[in-house]
Amino acid sequence: MAATRTIAPHDKLEDAAYAIVIRAIDAAAAKDGSLRKQLEEGIAGLGAGFAKAPESARVEALKRVESSAFFQNLRGQTLLVLYSTPMAYAHFGYEGEAFSKGGYLFRGFNDLRWLPDVPLADGGPVPA
């Protein structure tokens, strides 16, 4: 948890989202022995005090292993899973798949008002 929060620190994003990341990593490790070994060794390498250390110290510890397969894997999995969670969608305002709702054609694809509208010649008509 401390490592994933250091990689993608969004203070106001709830723990539940990060918990999903950890569950996904655990599930992958349970299926793949070499991955489990890599994770266990990698986490041990961060030191016993890592989880409780202040953020600057955690960043330093992760920087030291930044090029390792362990870190690359951890970072890749964290980003992939975290930003796919419903909590992240809600937190960042992402509305996701819209096919089931008829797309954004009538739901704000062109609702930006703080800049001028584009002349029709350079854009095109909105289908009725």
Binding site: F109, N110, L115, V118, D122, G123, G124
Partner: peptide
């Protein structure tokens, strides 16, 4: 064939492009 209607993202591109003097900007 008509052009694509302009999206929010395009409005930003268009305004910036026009500000720096670009002329051939469309959807």
């Amino acid at each position: 064939n008509p052009g694509m209607p302009a999206s929010n993202n395009f409005k930003v591109m268009y305004a910036g492009a026009k500000k720096v003097g670009y002329k051939r900007v469309h959807t």
